[in-house]
C-alpha cells in the first residue's frame, strides 16, 4: 500500500501535466502559445544573413540557438505565473484537500511547463533549421549536449521559478518579476553576442542561467570553430554545467521549503479573501 500510494503523486501528477499540456495547445490557447516563438522566428528571418563583425559568421546562426536558451529560461516565468494565479483561484487549495494532491500538483506543473518549453523549442528549431545556414545537426555528440543543457536548464529555471512563485504575493506582483528577467535576458548575449558588451555587464550576465543556456545551446547546434566568437574562445562546458548545476541545486533545496510553507497557509477563508479582493478589482 505504501509503495502504491507513493507512486500516486507521480502518476497522477504526470497525467495532470499531460491534460493541462493538451489544454494549453488546443483551441484559442494555441494562438497564445505559438505567437512568441513565431514572432521570434520572423525576427531571425530578417537578419539571418547579417554578418557579425567581419568574422564570417552569420547572426542568424548565432541567434537561433541563443533564443532556444532564452525560451528554456522563460519556463521560470511560466511557473511563477501559474503558481500565483492558481493559488488565487483555489486550484492549490483543491490540491491540498486531495491525498497526494500538493506533490502531484507540482509534478504536473513542472511536467506541463517543460512540455511547453520543449514545444517552443520545436516550433523554433524545425523551421529555423531550414531558414538559418550553418547549424550543425548531424552529430550525436551535439544532440547529447543539447539534451543535458536542456534538462539541467529546465530543472534550474523551474525550481527557482517555483520558489519565487511561492514568495510572490499575487499575479500582479508576478507581472513585475518579468521586468528584471527581461533585463537579464537583454544582457545575456541572446540577440547579440555578449562580447560586444562592456566587461562589467559581461560579468553580471554570467551570474545568471540565461547566458549559460544560450551558450550551451550554441555549443550544441553550431560547429566547433564558432566557439571563437565566445568569451575565452571556448564553449566552456564545465562552467556551463557548474553554473546551471548550482542554480538547480539552490532551486531544488529552496523550492520544497517555501512551497510547503505556501501550501500550508492555503485555506477556504484565504481563497475567499483572494476572491473578494479580485472581484473588488474587477468591479
Amino acid at each position: 500500500m505504501k509503495a502504491r500510494t507513493g507512486t500516486t503523486a507521480i502518476t497522477s501528477g504526470v497525467s495532470r501535466g499531460w491534460i493541462e499540456l493538451r489544454q494549453a495547445f488546443s483551441g484559442s490557447e494555441l494562438v497564445n502559445q505559438v505567437l512568441w516563438p513565431l514572432l521570434t522566428l520572423v525576427a531571425i528571418f530578417f537578419y539571418r544573413n547579417r554578418e557579425f563583425r567581419h568574422t564570417g559568421f552569420k547572426l542568424g546562426a548565432l541567434v537561433l540557438p541563443s533564443v532556444l536558451g532564452m525560451f528554456i529560461a522563460l519556463g521560470m516565468i511560466l511557473v511563477i505565473q501559474y503558481l500565483t494565479v492558481e493559488r488565487e483561484d483555489g486550484t492549490l487549495l483543491r490540491a491540498r484537500s486531495t491525498p497526494h494532491g500538493i506533490r502531484a500538483y507540482f509534478i504536473g506543473k513542472l511536467f506541463m511547463t517543460s512540455g511547453c518549453v520543449v514545444a517552443y523549442l520545436a516550433i523554433l528549431l524545425v523551421p529555423g533549421a531550414f531558414m538559418v545556414k550553418g547549424l550543425k545537426l548531424d552529430s550525436f555528440g551535439h544532440w547529447a549536449t543539447l539534451v543535458w543543457v536542456l534538462l539541467l536548464g529546465l530543472v534550474a529555471t523551474q525550481s527557482i521559478g517555483a520558489a519565487v512563485g511561492a514568495l510572490v504575493a499575487s499575479p500582479r506582483a508576478a507581472g513585475a518579476i518579468t521586468l528584471p528577467v527581461m533585463a537579464v535576458i537583454s544582457i545575456s548575449g541572446i540577440f547579440y553576442p555578449i562580447t560586444a558588451l562592456p566587461d562589467w555587464i559581461q560579468t553580471t550576465a554570467q551570474i545568471f542561467p540565461v547566458y549559460w543556456l544560450g551558450l550551451g545551446m550554441r555549443s550544441a547546434l553550431l560547429p566547433g570553430d564558432m566557439a571563437a566568437v565566445e568569451l575565452h574562445h571556448s564553449w566552456r562546458h564545465l562552467e556551463t554545467f557548474g553554473v546551471l548545476g548550482a542554480w538547480a541545486l539552490v532551486g531544488l533545496l529552496l523550492a520544497p521549503l517555501v512551497l510547503r510553507r505556501m501550501a500550508r497557509r492555503e485555506s477556504g477563508a484565504r481563497v475567499a479573501a483572494y476572491r473578494e479582493k479580485a472581484l473588488q478589482r474587477v468591479g
Binding site: M1, T8, S12, S15, S97, G101, G268, V271
Partner: peptide, 27 residues
C-alpha cells in the same frame, strides 16, 4: 466541498472527476 471560483476552468467535468479519482485509487 470547497466553493469553487475559477479553478480548473479549462477542464471538462468528467475529465476532472476521473482525474481526481486517481488520487484515491491506492486508498
Amino acid at each position: 466541498v470547497l466553493q469553487s471560483w475559477r479553478d480548473h476552468g479549462k477542464w471538462r467535468v468528467r475529465e476532472l472527476l476521473a482525474h481526481l479519482g486517481t488520487y484515491y485509487a491506492g486508498h
